[in-house]
Amino acid sequence: MDVLDRIREQVENNAVVLYMKGTPQFPMCGFSSRAAEALKSCGVPFAYVNVLQDQEIFENLPRFADWPTFPQLYINGELVGGCDITLELQASGELERMVKEAVEKAEQGAPAANDDQG
């Protein structure tokens, strides 16, 4: 699969995705670390991609949404921003609301296994 299609699939199939250097447990960059901590503070699970472990994504993510730096936070398939924006949204309480809404929406949208009522 083309790398841009691969990224598109990741951001569309996960309500919240953080592209970062390292992992939330072992971040390799101060900016990535802060963004991951901000997301953790929202108390809902989120997906992440360690760009240091994927050369293709590392090289191509900047042109996916025309954003030159890491980390990059996507909610509902849309780029929200990098570290500074994530922290500002956290400080204003917006981040938690956005993340929770996205996760709820994803849960409602997911086809329930035994639900044939439409």
Partner: peptide, 15 residues
């Protein structure tokens, strides 16, 4: 403006 974070080592790391 807020202070910037420390490095944690990843600047030189390439995948």
């Amino acid at each position: 403006a807020p202070a910037s974070p420390p490095c944690l080592g990843g600047s030189k790391a390439q995948p």
